[in-house]
Design a protein around this nucleic acid. Structure first.
Length: 628
RNA sequence: GGGGGCGUAGCUCAAUUUGGUUAGAGUACCAGACUGUCGAUCUGGUGGUUGUGGGUUCGAGUCCCAUCGCCCUCGCCA
């Protein structure tokens, strides 16, 4: 006979992924023994990371969490943890029976205060793995400040806990030494940055969080206005227009560390809210920006990691970057540049190549040095399948055998002379694997970029601790938007055209270069900026090209256009993604490792359960109705 | 919106190609022992709606369908 099952709990709404925290009676074990009181009567004198042999003999009081407890029946050892480190505290019945009796009930993550004397560890018991391993504290008095339930996972770096649990119990996850170090490192970087800009006369000005929606660019997060039902504020995608206005207002050098919000899908290196270092300067050109940011990066890396980097950074014109790497954010930590073999491919007998070229496409390839023995036919098939994500219909390959000859099913379509040219151009040597993609230029670029990055990692071409900065410059003003049949700004509509290209703006807009630049670190776009348009006539020409009518321009950016009429100085600036910078400096693979309370890939904050439903009353006040 | 990976004890994982006895291990937790450990040790123990719902089958952790969640990625991110 089975008993009737209890009713299942009601399905939790999707907006509230959190479940109630399970409770046990573990924490109650101490309640009868000591008073868990406040105020504390033991006051901290040192952190758990600072005691050394030189402190021996001193009376100290430490506060922290019970990281580990080792009970030998008589003596009890506790590793006490705070954000600075671990210190072993010792409870011995013959030293202090009362303290020992109290410590008997301690469990992991209890919060305690210990007063005692610093002693040398006895002969042979020094722990070289601990910074504080030369000493220990003999406890004379101990106070339980708070008990703890058994945590859902241990507070250890080496534990690989699921993302879901980490985010739901973020306060425990953040207690782990690795996360503590990440956030303290982040804080240190921010300090160096603020100091750098303060020394150079920058003014920190805050810009509004509740601002105006602009349909261009990323999707806005909207905030309904209660006072004006049916109207909305937008949370800023960046303070772009405000910082330009501040230049018109005469602030000359502006800096802000500011949250930006974009309602787009997430990635490992993209969160819906992120932190930018926003900078704008007057009476400057792009060289001033390069020098400023290079100086900043050198100082941050020197003061936080102790790494000296070379400046100035390499500059790569956009067109070169696309040609050599297939991307506008090349990873310069390794070579393996792309090679255009269109001329050879066009003359060969291989139909896939010739047809791609006839259709206006390209044939380009790269040389995976020494990769031939490591890649079976099957591996290459897997790679080909993977490339479909980038739109590539296929992947052609040739291996270079020990005698230097090309081998593969397509080699027969190439004459001896063509093969020789191919080998020479690609620097082919025995053991190399040559890979080719034939397709539309954009597909070729995206595919080979992906392939290059994948192979760079797989073949171990990326040295640990290497940091390769570069500037990508001379971006085109516009990219063609086939859907809307008009040019779109590559950067944004306030970017100054290159002075040499001012005359061709109207006739050949897609050939016009912009005064825009990106800074790239290890293949990740760290930030970008431009010299801005400060003359209303040029700004109006750009709007015309973008098919933004006078009325529309006035409605959307009228305040900026007006401002430009009242003595706008020449100005320009840049914005850097600080979360990404911290992530790259710490060599972590996700922004979640450097943001205290990040969102999941579906843009949910698992600890609080945001976003959540709101009351009917709240909706009514805002004049909103949910229709789905 | 598309593609892929994952979901089994509090946690991390296993479960013998192709469905078969009572779903195991490590760790955590609980109890006992132990006075120099430091990922303590030893002995014993608790702990499972195999994400959820349906289906196929004599029989489902395993196969099928749907759905939810987490991760990676394409599109998207001026």
């Amino acid at each position: 006979m089975t008993a009737a099952r209890p009713m299942p709990p009601p399905t939790r709404p999707r907006s509230l992924p959190c479940q109630p925290i399970r409770t046990t009676r573990r924490a109650a074990r101490c309640e009868t023994r000591t008073e868990r009181g406040f105020p504390m009567h033991l006051k901290r004198t040192h952190t758990c990371g600072e005691l050394r042999a030189e402190h021996v003999g001193q009376p100290v009081t430490l506060c922290g969490w019970v990281h580990n407890r080792r009970d030998h029946g008589g003596v009890i050892f506790i590793d006490l943890r705070d954000r600075e480190g671990l210190t072993q505290v010792v409870f011995k019945p013959e030293h202090n029976a009362e303290a020992h009796a109290i410590a008997d009930a301690f469990r992991s993550e209890y919060v305690i205060a210990c007063r005692g004397q610093v002693r040398h560890r006895i002969e042979g018991m020094v722990n070289p793995k601990m910074d504080t391993g030369a000493v220990e504290v003999y406890v004379d008095e101990v106070e339980l400040l708070n008990a703890s339930e058994t945590p859902p996972f241990e507070i250890e770096d080496r534990l690989d806990v699921s993302q879901e649990l980490r985010l739901r119990y973020r306060y425990l996850d953040l207690r782990r030494p690795m996360m503590q170090r990440s956030l303290m490192f982040r804080s240190q970087c921010f300090g160096v940055i603020r100091d750098y800009f303060a020394r150079q006369g920058f003014v920190d000005v805050e810009t509004p969080l509740l601002t105006k929606s602009t349909p261009e660019g990323a999707r806005d997060y909207l905030v309904p206005s209660r006072v004006h039902p049916g109207r909305f504020f937008a949370l800023p995608q960046s303070p772009q227009l405000f910082k330009q206005i501040l230049m018109v207002a005469g602030f000359d050098r502006y800096v802000q560390i500011v949250k930006c919000l974009r309602d787009e899908d997430l990635r490992a290196d993209r969160q819906p809210e992120f932190t930018q270092l926003d900078v704008e300067m007057s009476f400057i050109d792009e060289e001033d920006i390069y020098a400023l940011i290079e100086g900043l990066m050198a100082e941050v890396m020197q003061k936080t990691l102790g790494i000296a980097i070379e400046t100035p950074f390499q500059r790569i014109p956009y067109a070169d970057a696309m040609e050599r790497y297939g991307t506008d954010k090349p990873d310069l930590r390794f070579g393996m540049e792309l090679v255009n073999v269109g001329d050879i491919a066009g003359a060969c007998e291989f139909g896939v190549f010739t047809r791609a070229l006839e259709a206006g496409g390209q044939v380009r390839g790269l040389n995976a040095k020494g990769a031939a023995p490591k890649h079976s036919r099957k591996d290459i098939d897997t790679m080909t399948e993977w490339l479909r994500d980038f739109g590539a219909k296929g992947l052609a390959w040739m291996k270079v055998d020990e005698g230097g000859a090309l081998t593969s099913s397509i080699v027969k379509f190439f004459s001896d002379e063509q093969q020789a040219t191919l080998k020479e151009r690609m620097g082919a040597e025995p053991g190399d694997l040559l890979l080719f993609v034939a397709d539309a230029p954009a597909v070729v670029a995206a595919s080979l970029d992906g392939l290059r990055r994948r192979l760079g990692a797989e073949l171990g071409l990326i040295a640990k601790d290497s940091f390769a900065f570069c500037w990508v410059v001379d971006f085109p003003m516009f990219l063609w938007n086939a859907e809307e049949q008009r040019p779109d700004p590559t950067h944004h509509p306030f970017t100054m055209p290159h002075p040499e290209d001012l005359d061709i703006l109207e006739e050949r807009p897609l050939d016009a270069r912009a005064y825009a630049y990106d800074i790239v670190l290890n293949g990740t776009e760290l930030g970008g900026g431009s010299i801005r348009i400060h003359r209303p006539d040029v700004q109006e020409r750009i709007f015309r090209l973008l098919n933004i009518g006078e009325e529309e321009a006035q409605e959307k950016f009228g305040f900026l256009l007006d401002a430009l009429k009242y003595g706008a100085p020449p100005h320009g600036g840049i914005a850097l993604g600080l979360d990404r910078l911290i992530m790259l400096l710490l060599q972590r693979d996700s922004l979640r490792e450097v943001i205290a309370f990040p969102k999941t890939q579906r843009a949910v904050e698992l600890m609080t359960g945001a976003p959540s439903e709101v009351s009917a009353r709240q909706l009514q006040e805002l004049g909103l109705r949910i229709i789905t």
